[in-house]
Write a protein that binds this DNA or RNA. Structure first.
Lengths: 136, 136
DNA sequence: ATCCTATGATGGACTGGGTCCAGGTCAAGA
DNA sequence: TCTTGACCTGGACCCAGTCCATCATAGGAT
């Protein structure tokens, strides 16, 4: 059921009830929760869990590469458990809803050598913006 | 000299010494300052200018479409005066330095219709990441 | 040149998102 | 079952940004 939890377990992560709850809350597709939203959902299952633990746990998941961070609105960061399958994001300028999308081709190949300024470029994150059906 | 200032003047913007200083400080290529950096530089020319005014002025410039906001590190937003020429950003994962880059082609065309979920997609922002020559 | 007034500036309080830390707790190996 | 180092807690703290009551002034009207 919980892919994310399985992947973390496989890395020898010390399993605690707090970490289990955070991983369960965050699991799924098109999930892009803020840390406070994760905390609110986690409290529903484990009332004593602290905000600091949620922040720490999310930070560790990001370091392990099992979760990615995105900040689409300059406010709270959002956490995306779908890190094992590379993808980009489509954000509604009206209501802020976010979809995972898969553009054609590899965005890295669109950056010509003379535009790389000697960098070793390793990743590209794309945020598409527009209006969703409800907002347009 | 100040392209940004000229463009703002041409829009009938009420010109004050504070706005002039903010526009001057922000003008140029590959400029990606935070609001507090803009404030620090502005204070050098106009010691009494307040933080609130810098925030207000930057916000107005963004609304007018003369300056774009970017948040590459999830911390302070950065302001880019180069809004009249569309471009993307290349960020060093080591030191955080930012370059303006111009990828080949239009990123919007890489998003197939079946990946648009009924959205009217109007823009795409790409952040390339890698290591700059000094950090690699 | 001077006056008037709406627009802009000020600074200090306040908020939201996030980090830090000292002390208490517990998972899991021996 | 014991031990211990990793983990959790809650509260203080920090930074980026916003709000607001009051003061200042750009620039049109006279």
């Amino acid at each position: 059921m919980s892919d994310l939890l399985e992947r973390l377990r496989g890395r020898g992560w010390r399993m605690t009830s707090q970490r289990r709850v955070v991983a369960e809350v965050l699991d799924g597709d098109h999930v892009h929760l803020t840390a406070d939203e994760v905390h609110a959902l986690a409290v529903g299952r484990l009332p004593e869990i602290s905000r600091a633990t949620v922040y720490n746990t999310l930070g560790e998941m990001v370091s392990l590469g099992e979760v990615t961070e995105l900040s689409t609105d300059g406010r709270a960061k959002r956490y995306d458990p779908n890190a094992h399958r590379p993808h980009q994001h489509l954000v509604c300028s009206g209501c802020g809803v976010i979809r995972d999308v898969h553009p054609a081709g590899d965005p890295l190949t669109d950056l010509p050598p003379d535009q790389r300024y000697g960098f070793t470029v390793s990743a590209a994150a794309i945020t598409y913006r527009g209006l969703c059906p409800e907002c347009s």
